[in-house]
Write a protein that binds this DNA or RNA. Structure first.
Lengths: 265, 265
DNA sequence: AACGATTTGTTCGTATGTATC
DNA sequence: TGATACATACGAACAAATCGT
């Protein structure tokens, strides 16, 4: 009894997929056909197909069938600072520009502004006291009509009372929030620390990004930005479905990329 | 019929876990107990528990039970260049030092050296011609006895024939491969580009890292390093289980972190 | 718009295997 | 060795989504 039957079936199907016998986007045999092919019960072949979905190789669609996942051309987003503009990568404007450069059509979703008490991570990263308030500015981004990323920035509420009024308005700040805070309050962003992790999507992310419930991870970046006096001025959390986003950091002297992601194939 | 029963059960169990009614590391009721509690069949409660495992909330152990996942203190590894040493973060020596700084005990696994034809991504990133050879140097790293990361570096075989003989020897280069190549051949690394993605672990990674088959993602970083003349001198792929690793990049002027990851809690 | 056929999703019952204590 | 608990496997029935007629 080396391997359970459902694994043997899964391995054989994976072999067929990787050998190109079943092409990306095409339909697998139905569960009843697989049942006959492998002389197993329907439940057992379902276990096999589920093993493949959990590895991100296959998706199932009720009423239609099971399909080999279609290859998505990932969007490469550079999160290190652009040496020309000096802007941080990956946020608002920079993201939009990067998308256009890769011949994609970006759209910004509605901006949602909220005020909360600074809790846990947000409070400690912004070095706030217990009970201090923060403004959160949440925005979604789509590329070519597909939901692509979800970003929430947190600012100390003190920034608003000190004059950065537009932070609490649910309207996009055209020049960019970073520049707005610098011009209004004099807090000039000189650097940031990004922390990156990956995890399965939660229920809200599954719904928003239309992800399968298993087989696709999300990347989460959290960025703390600092001003010249090493004070934290912003904390931004971004969620990126890993099937359509690759994050890029350039460190030191790096030649420009020859082409978009298609060239790297 | 809003939600299928197994989802309702999963949601209720998730609620209990998140409310702290079932603590991290502790045992869930057995499948038979859950069957009685929820008046469902054993198969249905199994579906519920599987939903939780696929979200990384629970692990099941044959003969023992199902357990709420234990919180792992993630290891934070800075991949941007250290401004003092000028070395790239995350590799060999730098990784070991970072681990020690976080009061962890790092160990290096055996080094595996192989020679291959440069295919696909490796060939294009190193700008090699069809049929050119590459040296791969693969190494695993453990922290506190647990497998932590797996790294493979690729160098053009030409480097060896030009004198960097130690690249094909299965022995650790104490001073670091980067410095060795610089000293031997004069290819001094001045920068690198990291591309980061996340995906479900493959079978080999599940086995090596002892990961559950669902619920944990791996981060994959691929680094192309360049010399002063913008020539690629190295391509390194590293796999990091996301449950125990956070990647960090510092961009611009960033104050040092006050403490290890425990402080950020 | 309605219906039937197809295909996956959900639920149950049952039996047996395997890992752990 | 036995008891416990999860894993695998099969069979069956009905539900729900999709598609074409």
């Amino acid at each position: 009894m080396p391997e359970p039957m459902y694994r043997q079936i899964a391995d054989e199907l994976r072999r067929r997929i990787e050998a190109g016998e079943i092409e990306p986007g095409s339909k697998l045999p139905t569960e009843f056909e697989l049942r006959d092919q492998f002389s197993a019960s329907r439940n057992t072949v379902r276990d096999a197909v589920r093993a493949l979905t959990s590895q991100g190789l296959v998706i199932t669609r009720p009423g239609q069938g099971s399909f080999v996942v279609d290859t998505i051309i990932p969007f490469e987003i550079t999160l290190s600072r652009d040496s020309d503009t000096g802007l941080g990568g990956g946020e608002g404007i920079a993201y939009m520009e990067a998308a256009k450069a890769q011949a994609r059509k970006p759209e910004e979703g509605a901006l949602r502004v909220e005020i909360h008490a600074a809790t846990g991570r947000i409070g400690s990263e912004l070095q706030l006291k217990e009970g201090d308030q923060v403004v959160s500015r949440n925005q979604t981004l789509r590329i070519d009509g597909k939901p692509w990323s979800m970003q929430t920035s947190f600012y100390p509420m003190e920034f608003v009372t000190k004059g950065a009024i537009r932070l609490v308005q649910a309207a996009i700040i055209e020049s960019g929030s970073v520049r707005y805070v610098a011009e209004t309050l004099g807090f000039e962003q000189v650097g940031y620390r990004d922390k990156i992790t990956a995890r399965p999507p939660n229920q809200g992310e599954v719904a928003f990004f239309k992800l399968p419930e298993v087989g696709v991870s999300v990347l989460e970046t959290s960025r703390t930005a600092y001003d010249r006096l090493a004070r934290p001025i912003r904390y931004t959390v971004t969620v990126w479905p890993a099937d359509r986003n690759h994050l890029v950091y350039n460190v030191g002297d790096v030649p420009p990329e020859i082409q978009g992601p298609t060239a790297a194939g």
